[in-house]
Amino acid sequence: MEITRKEDNGSIILNIKGEIDGTNVDEFEKSLKESVSQSQNVVLDLTGLVYISSTVLRVFLMYQKQMKAKGGVMVIKNVGNDVMDIFNVTGFVKLLNIEK
């Protein structure tokens, strides 16, 4: 997994590439947590992300909720087919703000 972080006019854009699973989910959670605490507008650019395990869904859910609670927006964009399947199967597609 590889995370690059950009800031653009107050919003934070995280690009996540590769795979997120149980071995690196903590690292992903750490950078997402940091971004959510710093900005009202977080964009997760999933270009190049090919796999997430079910453990990772919990992290998406947790910070989606936190963001909503503090009145911010967390947007997910450029979701690849494999990851989209997982969002579809688990029903997360309805809960997350996925930009098509």
Binding site: L57, L61, N88, V89, T90, G91, F92, K94, L95
Partner: peptide, 12 residues
């Protein structure tokens, strides 16, 4: 047909 996971959203 899939629905959302359990424990995440009350109104599912």
């Amino acid at each position: 047909k899939h629905s959302f996971v359990m424990g995440a959203a009350e109104t599912t």
